[in-house]
Design a protein around this nucleic acid. Structure first.
Length: 887
RNA sequence: GCCCGGGUGGUGAAAUGGCAGACACAAGGGUCUUAAAAACCCUGGCUUUCGAGCAUGCGGGUUCGAGUCCCGCCCCGGGCACCA
């Protein structure tokens, strides 16, 4: 490029340089990955995004850039690195946006994707675009449907008519994982319960393996805990209670069968099927009323734990199997139909919820465990969940612990009154959506044969073009209104039949896309096992922690199913996971006006974090004066009108500076507050490196290696020090990049730069010796390589100016020499009673005796010893410190 | 209520149980310049009687030595929330 030929101009022309190299990377297909490559494979993956209209913000660079740096580093270390990108284009986020803009998602998504792609290239991300996938294309969703059929074949997809989570605003059912605090994860509306026939994936069948599989993957402990808690394994027993005067049996799940002797009543959920049978004539009306009231209240109201418990006596009694006592059966909404059996035995003495209920309704309380002989149930102020010894029944004297629980379960099993059982909190994954923009569920409903899977050969079931794709709200998908789509024939008998009109939720597409990248153009299968087994599991997966119990759980489930079906030789998809921190922006807002109701602005609602604060919309910025504005740090998001784009930053400071700033500002996992000052600092550093390097390049001698490796080469102290720093930096940068410590990595590069600058100042206008020239040349040649993963554009430009051909991406990351990096002297801290009194500088091999002698010889130490104090003890820390204990 | 994170200068942050504040930003001073910008150099936790003392949310403890480990609190962020 002609405008960077002026070598006297020491200002770095990042615009021209970055454009030049991005073009060259593209035209040389630098980032295209081949399967037939002898280097060891490495798979680095970002969670694929849905491309929204606003494009990416600098916030997105918090994950794309660090992974890019890690991948570029891996390439330079000699790996064949798969680093792909694609579009999670199906699902509510894309569809909601299309509706809002009055666009057809089919046309809109590719436009948005193209913009994302342009931006990602602008930031210099090294994706292999030849493997780009779009989950909303028939070439892709054909195989998502294939996955559905596989699950169906294996008994893991079923249709059931149970009350499901319904979002009235999105007009569709939602999976449990998509309901956050009783609200829709996309639009924040309150979720209702609606009974309707829906398709589910049987993720509960894999609950145990989804917990145990967490053990040997390198994920943040917090995410593992989140998943584990979500799955919620709890060990206990099912116990059968006879309903007095009937043939019915009420089965309960309990984790504390050992407290059966203290069960003084039972509670069933309002929706429990036996309620009618249990209720006595006298109580029936009251029970019925209570059930209706419970049905009307929202999930949120019902599940708020601080609400005082309510309930109604059914008039019926159960027989406690361990002592044949009659105990009353109540109906109360603190018992949930969705967990266990929807019925509990209540042990008020040892369960706080039952305790509160018993006290409120004056039900008797019986102590099973006593912490002392004179302890009475009447004296309790709260339940005793732990401690004490059993005070009644055949296990009298047994401790209040797991071993007793086990013994009681065995005892119940022997007597045929119950059995040990493990219960899970996780529910099956509801996959049906009554929406247009998703992969049609490949099922045909035949009056004769029921729900028949579409034969594999007939895939894909193509999503038809429609005029109206808005959700209907009737519980039917818009597809139901298209006779050409709906009417078909049964694959089994050929009779007239109807297609399933629900589509799959977006999380179906993202549950296997990481497999498709290994073999993205396969038209015969979703992937070849050979390709997938070569590249996967993903070595390094980067994305947001908000997917802990959604995508990350579903993807693990599908991987296990595919493994069990023999398609994969691994059953955990992501070996190592890293979650980037959020990016916050300083955002103008105002107080909420009294009559403003929640959810009036659908889009903003999902991201607004504070209830007493409303973001200023662009049009309000003119009307709300500065002194009425309230500024807050909130997540950078287009719905909060506080987005800074990589485009504007790349234009002003350059992609390399933007990359460097995001990496340097804080540890990768930390939340960051965006600052323009910060990126200015990063840009200053990039320019400083550029300038220094260009000055020093005039000393470059290409054969420096022979000089540096000469036997008996004696360099002046300053040269040895510079070389030592260089090799120490190579070591540190390599270590830090390996461990995602980008901020300290860049700090090390800054330290090196500072040292080089001082060295340069010291040279002044004098001509360096041959040895010094070699040391400088080593630096001039290696620096572009060391910094290349972070500032790839500048590095390639430097590389070319050194007379090298090709790209730093194709070079090896420099190795360091231990001997050269070793310190020539060490500073030993001299402490007296743990307080620093002095420092002594010794050579690394100095004996401990010598260090001690030198320490005692320090004037400041001598002063401490005055007044008859004597040395009691010497604590040496070799190479670091010596602590003299005196008194 | 339960489960995870986190609290260190004016700010972002460093620190295998061993010199607290690396590296930066902002600030102040200087060099260069007619001037400014840029660049380069220097200073900087607080207090001080210039010996030193005090400092990593608070209070205890372990240790020769604690930002780091243990116990008890407080505050902030996130997740779950009547799960029997």
């Amino acid at each position: 490029m002609s405008d960077i030929r002026d070598e006297q101009d020491n200002r770095y022309d990042f615009r021209a340089t970055e454009a030049k190299w991005q073009e060259r990377w593209e035209s040389s297909e630098l980032f295209t990955v081949r399967d037939d490559d002898s280097r060891p494979p490495y798979y680095g993956l970002d969670m694929f995004p849905y491309p929204s209209g606003a494009g990416i913000s600098v916030g997105h660079c918090r994950n794309y850039v660090p992974l890019d740096v890690a991948c570029r580093f891996k390439v330079m270390q000699g790996y064949n690195v798969l680093h792909p990108m694609g579009w999670d284009a199906f699902g509510q986020p894309a569809e909601n946006e299309a509706i809002k803009r009055g666009r057809n998602p089919k046309e809109m998504v590719p436009e948005y994707a193209a913009n994302y792609k342009r931006q990602l290239k602008l930031v210099g991300i090294s994706y292999d675009w030849s493997r780009e996938v779009n989950s909303s294309t028939p070439e892709y969703y054909r195989w998502t449907q294939w996955m559905f059929l596989l699950l169906h074949k294996r008994g893991l997809a079923y249709r059931a008519n149970t009350p499901i989570n319904w979002c009235p605003s999105c007009k569709t059912g939602l999976a449990n994982e998509e309901v956050v605090n009783g609200r829709c994860w996309r639009c924040n509306s309150l979720v209702e319960k609606r009974p309707m026939p829906q398709w589910f994936f049987k993720i509960t069948a894999y609950a145990d393996r989804l917990i145990s599989g967490l053990e040997d993957i390198q994920w943040p402990e917090g995410i593992k805990a989140l998943q584990s808690n979500w799955i919620g394994r709890s060990e206990g027993a099912e116990v059968d209670f006879k309903v007095a005067g009937t043939d019915d049996t009420l089965t309960v799940f309990t984790t504390r069968p050992d407290t059966l002797w203290g069960a003084t009543f039972m509670v069933v959920a309002p929706e429990h099927p036996l309620v009618d049978a249990i209720a006595s004539e006298a109580q029936r009306a009251e029970v019925q009323q209570y059930r209706e009231r419970a049905q009307r209240s929202t999930e949120m109201e019902r599940q708020s734990a601080d609400r005082t418990k309510t309930g109604v006596f059914t008039g019926g009694y159960a027989i406690n199997p361990v002592n044949d006592e009659l105990i009353p059966i109540w109906v109360a909404d603190y018992v949930l139909m969705g967990y266990g059996t929807g019925a509990i035995m209540a042990v008020p003495a040892h369960d706080q919820r039952d305790f509160e209920f018993a006290r409120k309704y004056h039900i008797s309380i019986v102590l099973v465990y006593q912490t002392s002989d004179d302890q009475t149930a009447d004296a309790l102020n709260e339940a005793l969940p732990a401690g004490g010894a059993m005070a009644l029944g055949p296990f009298t004297g047994a401790p209040n612990d797991k071993s007793t629980v086990g013994k009681v379960i065995a005892w119940l099993e022997e007597r045929g009154q119950g059995k040990g059982l493990i219960n899970y909190r996780i529910r099956d994954w509801l996959i049906s959506r009554q929406r247009y923009w998703g992969a049609p569920i490949p099922i045909i409903h035949c009056p004769e044969h029921g729900a028949v899977p579409v034969p594999e050969a007939d895939l894909p079931v193509v999503l038809p073009d429609v005029d109206k794709y808005q959700p209907t709200g009737t519980g039917e998908s818009p597809l139901a209104g298209i006779p050409e789509f709906v009417n078909t024939i049964c694959p089994v008998c050929g009779a007239a039949a109807k297609r399933e009109t629900d589509t799959m939720g977006g999380f179906a597409c993202s549950s296997w896309y990481f497999l498709r990248f290994a073999d993205p153009h396969n038209t015969e299968a979703p992937f070849s096992s050979e390709a997938v087994n070569r590249w996967l599991p993903v070595d390094l997966y980067v994305g947001g922690a908000e997917h802990a119990v959604m995508h990350l759980l579903y993807a693990r489930f599908w991987t296990k199913v595919l493994h069990d079906a023999g398609y994969l030789n691994f059953d955990e998809p992501f070996q190592r996971l890293r979650n980037q921190g959020m990016l916050l922006a300083w955002t103008a807002g105002r107080k909420v006006v009294a009559d403003e109701t929640e959810g009036d602005d659908e889009e903003a609602a999902s991201d607004e974090p504070l209830e007493d604060w409303k973001v200023l919309k662009p049009e309000e910025k003119l009307t709300v004066p500065e002194d009425e504005r309230i500024y807050r740090w909130v997540k950078m998001s287009k719905s909060l009108y506080n987005v800074i784009t990589p485009d504007e930053m790349a234009e002003k400071y350059g992609a390399d500076s933007l990359r460097l700033y995001g990496l340097f500002v804080a540890p990768f996992e930390d939340t960051v507050q965006w600052s323009d000052k910060g990126i200015e600092g990063a840009s200053k550093f990039v320019n400083r490196v550029w300038r220094l390097w260009n000055e020093l390049r005039t000393y470059f001698v290409p054969d420096w290696r022979t000089v540096v490796s000469q036997d008996g080469l004696v360099l002046p102290d300053s040269d040895r020090a510079l070389r030592r720093k260089l090799h120490q930096t190579i070591r540190k940068v390599g270590d830090d990049l390996e461990n995602f410590r980008f901020n300290t990595c860049i700090a090390a590069l800054m330290e090196l730069t500072n040292e080089v600058s001082l060295y340069r100042n010291a040279i002044g206008t004098s001509t360096p010796e041959l040895g010094s020239l070699a040391v400088l040349s080593e630096l001039v040649e290696l620096l572009p390589l060391i910094i290349a993963p972070i500032t790839p554009h500048m590095s390639d430009e430097m590389w070319e100016r050194l007379g090298k051909s090709g790209f730093t991406f194709r070079e090896s990351f420099p190795s360091y020499d231990d001997a050269t990096a070793a310190e020539e002297s060490v500073t030993i801290v001299v402490q007296v009673n743990g307080k620093v009194r002095d420092r002594i500088v010794v050579s690394p091999g100095t004996t401990q005796e010598e260090v001690e002698r030198l320490a005692l010889a320090c004037e400041k130490v001598a002063r401490e010893l005055e007044g008859g104090k004597t040395l009691r003890k010497v604590i040496p820390v070799p190479g670091k410190l010596i602590n003299l204990v005196i008194s």
